[in-house]
Design a protein around this nucleic acid. Structure first.
Lengths: 339, 339
DNA sequence: CTGAAAGCGCTAACAA
DNA sequence: TTGTTAGCGCTTTCAG
């Protein structure tokens, strides 16, 4: 609890000098600096960042606005892994993270701007937010530096990081086509997710390039949920029994789809090939293991933090970063024997 | 960016009045209060929490010191789920969370006290820390309110939340004994974990009560790691082929143990029963699915936050909270056919 | 190279 | 019921 005032007194100098000495200014006599440092250590001094921030108008903190910070996230771990990436990067660069959770009612009452202004965060990383979330408008209108995960908005103070979802989806579907599948269904997430639009586009593109018909009715939404996907997949397979392969916009939904297939007596991959997206942990432990499009969630977080800090420090080139995907072939996809 | 000064000017009152009006003090004329509130809204005012904290000496923030905030944690999700619990509780009670990460080199240089004092957190929750971690001594010596996850330390300002690990382990081993197993091995975590000591004790107790011999050589450490457990389990099974069941101090290690068994041509559960601890997501997706002791990690987090806030607000009764476990029977354990 | 003084935005005695 | 004043711990002109 020692303050620079205490140090000043003990060292027989003024607070100004203490401040300068401790902050490494050059215009301080080395002897006085040593003396001051010694006293500081002796008094077990640590600077009061609140006071400093108040005058400097910089807090060296990044706000984290996570919309999906719920226990359900435990299954795909998206939130956690992104958080790890952000945390590592921020730590390396001397920023601390402050967590805002938007899901509690209390905080629903506060606007995005209020949240940020009150805590005086230097910038914000937003994750798990839907395209129709009211916060999103605020982000655009406000001039608080912000990086969005998986939502493509760019401005002077706003950037984003995402995966190449279109390309990833395309790869997955091309893989299925390569296996001889011609009737390929898709379980998508939901309309409010940008990534869903992209993955749908990739699906469509792959079909198109292979001269296969894109059929509206072969695509259904599974809300990124295992159980909902199970329901939707069952229905889809019933309506269109010719489908021999399904591309799911998430691994969790792929798992649900496999369950649906099992429920109808269809073996995966013998009777139905299923490809997922994400490469979550479960993908390599489930049976069958999941063929999927891997996206590096940790990297998404890490790059988000890099980008935000660049914006904060005025040295950001591009305000967008798109990461690559990887096709991981496992057991859930196989040659189409009906072909 | 409006301040109370601005409001004061616009409303034709003093800053004191503004402060009191906005903070709901009773000694303010309702008319002036309304006027002030109107002006505040008009100017889009939000209070500067830094300034407030500086004078109030309360920040309404909880520091989170997590030692295992790495991507590896993704497999068991312990960290994430605890975090969710803390986050929810803190949010409900108007506290924000600030994340300190101890794993980066930069921050290694700072002591626990420095970290906390600089950011002026009201209290701290510590998780994933080992019993021989230097931070732990600091916690005890410092008088910053703190709640530890899974480390039993109590003092005026320190409390802890944990699972009844002894009882949990005992239940698991009793289950194995009930299935007719007599030679039961254990893969423990490591010596620096309090939970490991407790789980060992539970294992020992169960054997004792069943009048079975506790043999030192039947217990090995698997470092809470799947691969290390695999190695250790293989060795254990080789050294003592009479073992028909193994209790693992974590599900991840149980998974490793099952792999080890498979590598030796032993089927689980036919030739070897394996029980885990935690009930992670994987436990219900792996094949075979895992019999395990469930502990509620979200609840651990939630209770930690409750306890800390109670301590902060001076209304904590007990400074410890021990949660119950649940035996979940699945496929990895079965009757001992050699009996 | 060093110090005095002002001020960041807020709260809190103390008077009026 | 309201205003005056001081001060939280720090940085930063501006003088010396």
């Amino acid at each position: 609890m020692a303050t620079i005032k205490d140090i000043a007194k003990h060292a027989g100098v003024s607070v100004t000098t203490v401040s300068r000495a401790l902050n490494g200014y050059s215009d301080v006599n080395e002897k006085t600096r040593d003396k001051i440092k010694a006293v500081a250590k002796e008094l077990n001094y640590s600077p009061n960042l609140l006071a400093r921030s108040l005058v400097m108008k910089k807090t060296k903190t990044i706000g984290l606005l996570v919309s999906g910070m719920q226990i359900e996230g435990s299954k795909d771990n998206f939130t956690y892994e992104v958080l790890c990436g952000i945390n590592d990067c921020a730590g390396e660069r001397g920023y601390d993270l402050i967590l805002f959770s938007t899901n509690t009612e209390l905080q629903q009452e506060k606007t995005y701007n209020q949240l940020c202004q009150e805590r005086k965060v230097d910038g914000v990383i937003l994750q798990g937010i839907k395209t129709d979330d009211p916060y999103l408008r605020e982000v655009v209108e406000s001039d608080i530096p912000c990086v969005l995960v998986d939502i493509p908005i760019e401005s002077d103070s706003v950037g984003y990081v995402t995966t190449d979802n279109k390309e990833g989806a395309k790869k997955a579907v091309e893989h299925l086509i390569g296996l001889g599948h011609r009737q390929i269904g898709m379980i998508n997430g939901h309309k409010q997710a940008f990534v869903s639009q992209e993955r749908l586009e990739g699906y469509r593109l792959a079909l198109e390039e292979a001269k296969l018909d894109f059929k509206e009715e072969n695509v259904v939404d599974g809300a990124f949920s295992e159980s909902e996907a199970q329901v939707q997949a069952a229905e889809l397979l019933k309506k269109n029994p010719k489908i021999t392969a399904i591309f799911c916009a998430s691994d969790l939904m792929a798992l649900g789809t496999i369950k649906a297939a099992a429920g109808m007596g269809k073996q995966v991959p013998q009777a139905l090939s299923v490809a997922g997206f994400d490469d979550i942990i479960l993908a390599s432990y489930s049976s069958p293991t999941l063929t999927t499009i891997a996206q590096d969630r940790y990297q998404i977080g890490y790059e988000s933090a890099i980008l935000l800090i660049q914006i904060l420090e005025g040295k950001a080139g591009s305000r967008k970063k798109v990461l690559n995907t990887n096709l991981i072939k496992r057991e859930s996809t196989a040659k189409n024997h009906e072909a």
